[in-house]
Amino acid sequence: MNVQMIISGVGGQGILLLTRIFSALALKEGLSIIGSEDHGMSQRGGSVLTHLKIGNFRSPLVKRGDADILISLEKNEAYRTLSYIRPSLQGREGGLCFINAPDPDFLNKNIKEYLKEKGIGVFVFWASKLAMDMGLVQSTNIALIGFATSHPRFPFSYEKMKDAVIEVTPSKFHEINIRILEKAFLEGKNSMAF
């Protein structure tokens, strides 16, 4: 398996936790992983961007237009990182974007059309509301990946994701995190967006 991912958001949204979840997942599967995270000044309330490459890769940076998966926890950061996503090419389907935002139609119309034309799947899901309603708004990140696992082309299964969440997050939050993951997964399944 070769998967290139971009995870973007704002400092404090738990981007690094997601990175660790995917790393744990890859390790368990015996897959090589290389990625890059932001620290220091770039974190003090700024944009956070993680590159993650699972498979046969040497460089930790995803090239723009190469990402199979874009996970964005904030809509402006989604705009900033949208050009990372891979268009469809020679029969191969385009990449998938999963964006946390309240308004499913927030994307600029022209951009939406362009992405559709290029075979790029864009899915807007209000993960923060789900997490907040479940009582743990800090797990917005968990909710978003839960939703993502419901997509048939998402490279990681719900079960494997669940195991990784349990491995990486503190035990006192296991129960609620799994409930959030599950609820988001089910909402994804029911949404028939796919």
Partner: peptide, 9 residues
């Protein structure tokens, strides 16, 4: 930076 702050197995 891309080595120090890279994640790798």
């Amino acid at each position: 930076l891309r080595v120090s702050h890279a994640q790798q197995t």
